[in-house]
Structure formats: C-alpha cells, structure tokens
Amino acid sequence: MSILVNKDTRVLVQGLTGREGRFHAEQMIKYGTKIVAGVTPGKGGQEVLGVPVYDTVNEAVANHHIDASIVFVPAAAAADAALEAAHAGVPLVVLITEGIPTLDMVAAVKEIKDLGVRLIGGNCPGLISAEETKIGIMPGHVFKKGRVGLISRSGTLTYEAAAALSNSGLGNTTTVGIGGDPIIGTTFKDLLPLFNEDPETEAVVVIGEIGGSDEEEAAAWVKEHMNKPVVGFIGGRSAPKGKRMGHAGAIIMGDVGTPESKLKAFAEAGIPVADTIDEIVELVKKALS
C-alpha cells in the first residue's frame, strides 16, 4: 500500500518530446513507472522511448487508461497544460515545472480543484511510492520500501531525509514533494488524512519551511485528527526577513511565516521537531518504539 500512486498507476507525460520530459521519462521507466502515453501539441503521431505521443490529452485519454499525468511543459504554458489534463478527466496531475507565473497558478488551482482533480506542485519534485512507482524527478535509488510517509516543500532535503530513513532501516512508503511556490495544488494538510488512512504508513515526516502558514494548518489538523506519530522539520530557520532564498515561497513577510510561529504550532500539536536531518530518524524511531 501507499498513497495516491502505486506500481499499477498508468502515467501520461506532458512535454514528453522536450529535453526535460524525455530525460525524466526515461528515468521513470527505468524505475518501473508505467508510462503509457505522451502529449506534445503538434507532435502527435511520434514515438519517444517506445511511448506513443498525442497532440492533446483528450486523444491520449481516448486511447489509454490514464491515472496520472506528469507535466514538464515550459513555465509560460505549464498552467494551461495542467488545466488541459484536468479537463480531460485525468484524476491526478503532477506539475514539475518551475517559474510559473503566480497569477496563472491562482486561476489554475481554483479551476482544477473545482473539477475535483488533485494537483501536486508546481515547482515540485513529484511523488514516489518506494520500489513501486516514481512520478517525479527524484533520484529513485535513495528510496527504500518501508514504514514512513514523507511530505516536503523542498527537493534535495527530501532526498536526504528519505535516504536517512532508508539507511536506518525505517524506509519509506510514499514521499510527496509538494513544491516551494506560494500557490500550490496540494498542501501538507491535504495529504495527512491520506497517510492517516494508509495501513502501511506507520509515521509521517513533515519537512516544512519558513513562509506561509501551511505548517500551522497541518499542525492544527494533526492535533484534531491524526492517529499516527508525526515528526516535523523546519528549514530556513535562520533566514533573514524579506530575503527570497531560492524558493519563491521561502520568504518571511512581516510576522507571517516565521519559524517561531511554526515551531509553536508543532509543539502545541505534540509534533516533535528535528533540528537536523539525522535527528528526524531518531525522533521517528522514538515515536514508533
């Protein structure tokens, strides 16, 4: 078991003929992901990596059963591509593209949610159910099948935490990189209920970051509903106010999104917070013992 995706998930790649799309599609296929179709407008009829390419998502959906789409389309057209997948009835859309105009995301996130489709990202590494399927750009080999669910706003730090969990023998169920942008399709509190229901997941690690109030909202949900241990981590605790640290979302404006507010929310929900990546493993072990 896992959440959202497993070895049977059939995947569409939007932007399959592009450099990024092709490279990562190849990596995903190597990992075992079932990639059944690609879409690039104007390139329908081609074949890339043995996968048929269509002009539109509607065409792909007419010819294949598709459970999820991963989007590698350039920023200017990325929100439109995600909307195309949602309107074609693809139930899960993973938007990898970085640098999408924020107002495009404001409009797209609302419309996609109204359609009842789950959007993950943008500007995210995607998701992976260890040793089953990878619908993303993370290095697959650091994820070992195990007991811990992981949700993160960061990329590299996620891989590092997943590797630490794997090396410790705890291992991973599903890992979701939700993305570092201010407007994203899925937040921590949207995923916690899924992990709460997943019989394979015994504990959940939430890797948060300064900026916004997603961690506070997640903590409130955990306090009320979660019946599995949750361990937290907050990146950027020493970042100066008003400075943008690479992630568009990781910026403290005024008193919103400070590390103090997040640490307080985690403490009130009984979520232990790790100061280092290694400590995440110790805290999870302690919580499960």
Binding site: T156, L157, G235, S238, A239, T276
Partner: peptide, 26 residues
C-alpha cells in the same frame, strides 16, 4: 549547496554552530 532547501538547512546549521553565513548559493 545543491537545492534551495538544502542550502537553507546549511545556513541554519552554520548559525546553530555559532557562525554567520556570508551568502546563500544554490
């Protein structure tokens, strides 16, 4: 460092160790 999250984490560690970072570079 590589990756914004890891670089931010590295800044945090240097601060924890009592030092002061001169920059963020991803």
């Amino acid at each position: 460092g590589n990756g914004a999250g890891l670089v931010m984490y590295t800044l945090d560690l240097v601060n924890r160790a009592g030092g002061k970072p001169a920059n963020f570079l991803d």
